[in-house]
């Protein structure tokens, strides 16, 4: 039994992988992701400047050999800030996506499997939560909890689960009609084990795709909130926070790199994620075969 399961798994994984590598855009996305993440991780090798060091003597420089993208109004090197900021932005996106998807998947499992009252309560909460505009809810929570990276991650997790919960619940609802679930029950396997060992793995494909796309969504949300001045604290460089410095119209014109460069970074990363996620969807989703 275990051997058969294993061979079946590898062949499915292999098939998915082959499908994935045939997709040129997906590979392009993957390469983009790897390059951007590597550049952010290797920031100390690529630049000698400290992203938070304020140096009034070099305020507002245009791009030059020393400062590839120039400096901002406090004399911080923009190139260094983009690289180090990428670490924060990507980390926030990844952790928030993981948190929201774990919570959503667990709740979706419970709602779909138990059905009845539990289901209707969870679904109503989900419906309620998705009525409110994300930006306003995030603003409200930040107003309550204060600005910090940890708070931002908590808020993204607790407001972000409805999407994936809907997906997982739908899958579980149809999966639980399968004969193998009945056979599990007949063998005396508990509800928890059926849900998380036997049902959840079968919804993994959509969850992975959704998490990938969510990383992009959270990076954009963080950028929007930080642009409003309600994201992460000012001393944390993120792509959104760098653009926040370019709010006034005169700065927008005199220091174009201050907003063009982080916007380009966001765009490249989100594009890569979207291409990569589309490829994953085509490879993992059985319905798209």
């Amino acid at each position: 039994m275990t051997i058969r399961k294993k061979t079946r798994n590898t062949s499915l994984a292999k098939r998915s992988w082959q499908k994935f590598i045939q997709n040129r855009m997906a590979i392009l996305g993957l390469i983009g992701l790897v390059l951007i993440i590597a550049a952010c991780l290797a920031a100390p090798l690529l630049t000698n400047y400290d992203p938070t060091l304020i140096d009034p003597s070099i305020r507002g420089l245009s791009p030059s050999r020393e400062h590839l993208l120039g400096t901002d109004r406090l004399g911080r090197d923009i190139f260094a800030r983009i690289l180090y900021g990428g670490r924060w932005s990507i980390m926030i996106g990844v952790i928030a996506a993981m948190g929201a998807n774990l919570l959503g998947a667990a709740l979706g499992c419970i709602a779909g499997y138990y059905g009845g009252k539990v289901d209707s309560v969870l679904v109503s909460i989900q419906e309620m939560l998705s009525i409110f505009p994300g930006t306003l809810i995030n603003m409200l929570c930040i107003g309550f909890m204060g600005k910090s990276v940890r708070n931002l991650l908590l808020i993204f997790t607790f407001t972000g689960w409805p999407g994936v919960m809907r997906i997982v619940r739908g899958r579980i609802l149809s999966l639980k009609q399968e004969p193998y679930v009945e056979s599990c029950r007949a063998n005396g396997i508990g509800g928890m084990s059926i849900m998380f060992h036997h049902l959840l793995p079968n919804t993994l494909g959509p969850i992975i795709v959704n998490s990938t796309m969510n990383v992009a969504g959270y990076i954009l949300s963080e950028a929007a909130l930080s642009y409003l001045g309600l994201g992460v604290p000012d001393n944390v460089p993120t792509w959104g926070n760098i653009i926040n410095a370019a709010k006034r119209l005169d700065i927008v014109q005199t220091l174009p790199m201050l907003w063009l460069a982080p916007a380009a970074a966001i765009c490249l990363f989100v594009l890569s994620i979207n291409f990569f996620g589309d490829g994953l969807r085509d490879a993992l989703d059985p319905s798209s075969k």
Binding site: A223, I243, I266, C267, V270
Partner: peptide, 22 residues
């Protein structure tokens, strides 16, 4: 459509202001 979903909304706002208004 790919670029439209990959850039923050306020970015387009800034670009429009620079282009059409400044």
């Amino acid at each position: 459509s790919v670029f439209g979903i990959s850039l923050p909304e306020f970015f387009f706002g800034i670009v429009f202001i620079i282009l059409f208004s400044v």
